[in-house]
Nucleic acid binder design. Structure first.
Lengths: 336, 336
DNA sequence: GGCGATGCTGAAAGCGATTGCATTGGGCCT
DNA sequence: AGGCCCAATGCAATCGCTTTCAGCATCGCC
């Protein structure tokens, strides 16, 4: 491979001068600059970025670790970060853990090894040990839904409870008092928070409200089975609240197969507002977590160089918003 | 930040020894190794990967450039590559160009700068200059749907024509002879190849076949408008072939709004088999490009170290498969 | 004509690892 | 006891770049 020196020799200058031309710093005589640029072009020279970030002080790249790029939530957050960063000349490197803790650890090590300027952990399989290690360290960090803010760590917390309240309140005003919940015991805090919040919000809204739970499966098929369980167990709820959109779509499928009309016979809600929610039939009423808000916060916390960095060390709370579509309507009057 | 030397000093050994412990090479006395490991743990030391890849000969990371991670096709290919690579201890770095040629160029420069072991370009906005430069260079490269194989460049080409033939043949056996095509003039070769293939396959299947085109818009709304155009122009086709799934979904939406039943009144097909195709209503009959096949080929071409690399320099042709779902059925007998 | 200021360029010291070669010291053979 | 060998470790060069400091013309000015 070629190096600065090759270029320098060909242009009959020192490596220092080539470097200056490359970075546009200092003043280089126009004729010299031209000679150097020609040499660079002739040789198709590309600077070695490893050497550059080894030698240079600043490292304009930030790291983002997410659970799974498949999940549109993580993808959107990542893209928001990326777009902000590119606008300011930062690079982003992303890693996904596939929800595996040991992969999380490996990714963190990798990011530290790359000496990123800052690191954002937007994952659901959070590991306490890692959180602590990062908190004790020096590197600017953004933690999502975990840990504590202060110093070099920014915390973003999502108020899931509030999101659930929005759903329940909305359904209550439509006359619903008889709810079913579809969720799962994954041990993931965000999910269990949602499950619990349904119970509490429902009671808060209306003391007579009933809530039936089906919490034993995950994914589309899980939603389907859970819906089936709810249907076969005595009277039918008038509304089914699902802790994520995928399960809600599964429920929709099952209801359709059983000849129930949504929302006339029964209302269904999801959580997350994935793309599918817009296009499934009927389009899903759900809860949206403002993803670009999360992304922008990450950028503002980590890109300390770029006039940003004002957000570092603070705690941010993001409030989910209700998105009303077609899968919800007034409670039916009578049993089916 | 800490360095090897810090660790070395603390463990009262030389940096060479620490390096050996770190990499598990050579023989280090057990007691020494223990001392070093303790020092590493105490200091929470993480090796600087830039320095490592500068000093070391081998660089076990490969680069993947895609047009847009939003697009499930690109995402799936990327994930297939990543999973293969991680299994063999390779890292993957990904860049998306958002379909912008200048971003493509920047990403290529970045990858070269990082001295990746190999580079895969899976983009639709291909730039001839870049292809040529890469072809003339040294680095192992995988090109998707462009360029020529040989030496250090692997080519993957997708037989779109064949995919379209599958669709048209299938519809023909269902009795369709009156087609509408929804596509767009994007200048993207894969898209125009599909548009053209429809015309030719239809004529090949049945000389009396008619094909009406609506090629002026893109995206979901574009598909919607194109469907509207097709509807308002004289007699209705019995089948609408869309060049991608997004536009097909748009068409479905428009047809539904106009009171047409799919597939009873009219059949609709897509292309790409994105996730949405499975969940929209009715589920879309479409064409799937085997993504993991593409991903595995990338890995086998680029990860020359890992017992792979046998695929480098060859040309691979991947054949799309027809995926029949619910949006297609027998041609209706009479005009509506 | 001498002198500091100014503009450009070069020499060389790191940055943090890897690695070939030199060194050391103990065990074993004769 | 002397010589050898090999295991274990250290020394120092190297990778490709940035950056400080110094050097050398050239220039304007008194």
């Amino acid at each position: 491979m070629m190096s600065l020196e090759t270029v320098a020799k060909r242009a009959r200058v020192s490596t220092a001068t080539v470097s200056r031309v490359l970075n546009g710093v200092d003043v280089v005589k126009t004729s010299t600059r031209a000679r150097v640029m020609k040499a660079i072009a002739d040789l198709k020279y590309h600077p070695n970025l490893h050497a550059r970030s080894l030698a240079g002080a600043v490292n304009k790249t930030i790291g983002v670790i997410v659970s799974n790029l498949d999940n549109p939530f993580f993808l959107d957050v990542y893209r928001a970060v990326e777009s902000d960063c590119h606008a300011e000349g930062y690079e982003v490197i992303v890693a996904n853990t596939l929800y595996r803790p040991e992969q999380l650890a490996a990714s963190v090590r990798m990011m530290i090894g790359r000496r990123v300027a800052g690191l954002a952990l937007i994952v659901s399989e959070m590991d306490e040990g890692i959180v602590q290690e990062l908190t004790e360290g020096q590197m600017p960090v953004v933690l999502y839904d975990v840990g504590a803010a202060g110093g070099h760590v920014t915390k973003i917390r999502v108020n899931y409870r509030r999101g659930v309240e929005r759903v329940v309140d909305y359904l209550t005003t439509l006359g619903h008092t008889d709810f079913g919940v579809i969720g799962h015991h994954s041990g993931l805090a965000p999910i269990s928070e949602r499950c619990n919040a349904v119970l509490e919000s429902a009671r808060a809204s209306d003391p007579r409200a009933t809530v039936r739970q089906a919490l034993d499966a995950d994914g589309l098929e899980g939603g389907r089975r859970a819906a089936a369980d709810l249907l076969s167990a005595g009277t039918l709820p008038t509304a089914i609240i699902c802790v994520n959109d995928i399960m809600a779509v599964g429920a929709l499928l099952e209801l359709r197969d059983r000849g129930l009309r949504v929302p006339r016979d029964i209302s269904v809600t999801g959580f997350d507002d994935i793309e599918l929610a817009k296009f499934c039939y009927p389009a899903l009423t759900t809860v949206n977590i403002p993803r670009d808000q999360v992304g922008h916060t990450v950028f503002r916390s980590l890109a300390v160089g770029a006039g940003a960095g004002d957000a570092l060390g603070r705690e941010f709370s993001v409030n989910p918003e209700l998105v009303v579509r077609e899968s919800t309507g007034p409670a039916r009057a009578s049993a089916i």
